[in-house]
Structure formats: C-alpha cells, structure tokens
Design a protein around this nucleic acid. Structure first.
Lengths: 168, 168
DNA sequence: CTTTTTTAGTACGATATCGAACTATATAAT
DNA sequence: ATTATATAGTTCGATATCGTACTAAAAAAG
C-alpha cells in the first residue's frame, strides 16, 4: 500500500500500533491473509465432500445441527453473510439431494423453515469424520494456544465488521 | 461439532488448549469466523469499486504494484490460491478493461507476463482512497495491538495450511 | 538428436453467485 | 376496514468459478 498519509488520526495510530506500517496496509494484509486462509480451509473440507458438494452445503447442514434446526432461509443467509439469492440456490441443491426439507412456516405465509434430514445429518457426520485426521495433523503443527488467541480476536473483528456495515 | 473423541492425541490436546472444546470444534469455529470476515471485507472493498468489478480484480492489481509487476498468470493463481482457469478469466476481464497488459514471456513461449497499466494503477489508487475512510472507522473501533497480534498468527496459519496441502 | 514427459495457458461446459425485479404475505398507516 | 409500505423467497439473466481436456512449448530421458 502506498505511504500517502491518511487522516491526521491515522498518523497517531501509526505510533500506537505498528511503527513501520500505516493501518491501511495493515488491514489489507490482514484481509488478504484471511482471504487465502478461507480458500485453503475451503479446499481442505471440500476434499472430503462427495463430488459436486461445496463448503456452503456442509456449512448450512452444520449450522442447522450446531446452532438451530428449522431456521428460515433469510436467517441462514444472514448467518453466512450471503445474499438471499445465494441461499435460495444452496437450499435448493440441498433439498434436491434430500439433505434438508423445506416446509412452509406456519407463522408466516411468506417464509419457509429449513429442517435437516437424517441423510443430512449423516452427510455432515461423514464429512467431519473424514476431516478429523487433517485437523489432527494441523493441531500437531500449530502451537497450542495460538488458536485460543486467534478466535476471540477474529470474533471481535467479525462483530465489528458486521455492526459497521449496518451503520453505513 | 459433536463431542465424539478424536484420536488419543486429541484427548491430550484438549487439556492443553481449551478445557471446554475439542480441537475439531475449535478449528471449525475458526474457519467459520474467517469465512465470514472474508465475505464482509470483500463487501467492504467491492462497495468502492466501479460496477461489475470485484475483489479479485483489485487484488491482482494490488499484487502487481505491491509485490511484483510482470508476473506470470500461474504465479498469480498460486499467490491467490485459485485454479489457473479462475486466474485466466480474471486477467481476461482486466485486460479487456485496459487495466493490465498481457505480453508474451520472452523466456518461455508457453507463458505470459502480466503488466499493470497506468489505468490499472489509477483504478487501484482510487479504490484505496475510497476505502480509506472505512478503514479509519475500523481502526477507531478495534483496539490498537489486536491486529498486530492477529497478523503474525494468521500468517503462520496460512503458511502451515499451504505447506500441509502440498504434503498430501 | 529424438522421444517422452511435464508444464503454462486456454477452451469448454457445468454449476455457483448474485443484483434486479417480481409475487405473495405481513405490517404499518390512515 | 382499507390502503400503502415493507418483507421473504423466488425467478431471471449476466457473470464468476473451476474441473476436464486440449494445444503448444519446455524439460527430461534415452
């Protein structure tokens, strides 16, 4: 990133954070690393999914089990930060594969509820079982505590980005 | 994630890292947060790009300026962890828009070199200038030092994922 | 020097992504 | 009660993504 100074406040921050890099650079590097890790982790998981299934298919099933079954498509789209149209497409694929069941929402004629099926639960479990050795290998390579340090900071960053976006 | 124990070693790790969560859960949460931050940061940047331009278009231009101009498509694909076909498509769009120039590699008849144009540099600069206020707002919200803590840990994780993938 | 193998980039086609616009339903305003 | 506005999900179409297979060129093997 070029060294053109930002607002005066940014100059102040330079001293507070990194002596050698302005915050714009820092954030670009941060988001770049995150983008690449995202793709690497997606490849890691997708290697263990049946052909033609992708990370988002697994992620939806996982969310229904881990967070709450029977959610509305809109809530799922928000949880994963994708447009409604993307979630509509993903759910159509999952329903067609028999991994979820879309039922009308009795409380709201406009909306649907997404329920995971037994086949969906089995799909998710198989993916997790197949991925476990890879994660075990990662665990062996990454020092204990680093993930514990990363997670809360990433969660904070995600919350701030989420909130910041709504403010604009 | 279910609480089914992993290999015996994982049981040992549980005590070492998190007392309440097995490592598979930890990594799933980690990758999930990263995936969402990736999408949020992509939206943040794409809001400041001209219509029909996406993060990867900017990222390639940025890479050519920040890292090295005149790189080969294969190197760019590797740098961004995308398949060759994805990079071919991205570069075709950029070339069509006059933001990069594809020239034959004088040392290797099979390959091309990607050079950023003046229009490409202006495109990148405009995006950065337009993004600066958003980043400044983030800087104000995220405690100093958190990014400094995050970056090296993410870089380490990315390197390990990169190397681990090549080992399989 | 010739042949075989590997590599860089592309073409093709199938599928994913997603903005715009739509319908049906719910909520808010009158 | 009626009308206006907002919302949930979908359809459509344009574009992005990417695996497979291809061509042309380079490197390796013989």
């Amino acid at each position: 990133m070029d060294r053109k100074p930002l607002a005066r406040r940014a100059g102040q921050l330079k001293a507070a954070s990194s002596m050698s890099e302005n915050p714009l650079n820092l954030y670009f590097r941060l988001f770049n690393e995150i983008g690449i890790i995202g793709q690497l982790s997606r490849s890691l998981l997708e290697a263990h999914l049946p052909p033609r299934f992708l990370l988002q298919h697994f992620a939806v099933l996982n969310h229904l089990v881990r967070v709450k079954d029977g959610q509305m498509p809109l809530h799922l789209a928000r949880a994963f930060q994708v447009p409604k149209t993307s979630m509509t497409h993903t759910l159509a694929i999952l329903a067609k594969a028999g991994l979820v069941e879309l039922r009308d929402n009795p409380d709201d004629g406009r909306s649907k509820c997404v329920w995971i099926t037994e086949a969906g639960k089995a799909f998710r479990r198989n993916a997790i079982d197949n991925l476990a050795p890879d994660i075990t290998r990662l665990v062996a390579k990454i020092p204990a505590g680093h993930i514990d340090t990363l997670l809360p900071l990433l969660t904070e960053l995600r919350c701030i980005l989420d909130t910041d976006r709504d403010e604009v």
